[in-house]
Amino acid sequence: MSATETQASPVHQTVRTPDPNAHPARLKADAVSVFYGEKQALFDVSIDLPEKSVSAFIGPSGCGKSTFLRCINRMNDTIEGARVAGKITLDDHNLYDQSLDVVELRARIGMVFQKPNPFPKSIFENVAYGPKIHGLARSKADLEEIVITSLQKAGLFEEVKDRLHQPGTGLSGGQQQRLCIARAIAVGPEVILMDEPCSALDPIATAIIEELIDELRSNYTIIIVTHSMQQAARVSQKTAFFHLGKLIEEGPTEEIFTNPREKRTQDYITGRIG
């Protein structure tokens, strides 16, 4: 965390090149395919997602990147008729194993959605929701501490400390999204999935969230789906390019953007497809 604190605003940041292989990958996907009814939305995706770094999924809309993201904490289960084939492992445990409990899995792999979706409750209750349902706090004081720490980690505490008991829906869009991040952090996940977290936000709020993602990297494995190649370049260490439901190319972010192996990746990056 302290390493990133001194960094300049990410808007002015250039592409950094830490070696993604510096961190071991605990999260691995092996030949994952997804079907919605008869239609196949994802074809044989295999990828390793390194720990404590940011991986970005890019590609044109409908390319399957969000679908794949939702496979990682099994949110596809909630969609009628969705079927997943293949294997996703966390610490060598298959997430699609019969014996695995989805509730437990989602406590370990949190998710932040495209549109900020705070519950119609107070700011405090929003963050306390996860710890409460999972029974993480020993006492009221404990719960308060979790909430405050989470809000601090999400960089929201200073802005809301005087109105913790006012509705979360009264915050601005960027604040709401950070509240949702705090809400996910409060459960203490190892992985945080972010599904285009900035697509509904203005550039300033986006910059703040990107900075936050960079800070969170030291403690969490972050996987972000984004529409914006600039965003992927700014925040991620590893990038995967999806097209028409297939994983076309993956690798260190810098390589993908400067020296893609596949023509399709290059076409996308240079704006010829998209």
């Binding site: 509730v103 406590a107 029974g135 190892e190």
Partner: peptide
């Protein structure tokens, strides 16, 4: 702390299900 949290989540599971 992470292990403790996982333990707590796991303890609540059967009641919640």
């Amino acid at each position: 702390a992470a292990l403790d949290r996982r333990e707590r989540v796991r303890n609540g599971l059967s009641r919640r299900h």
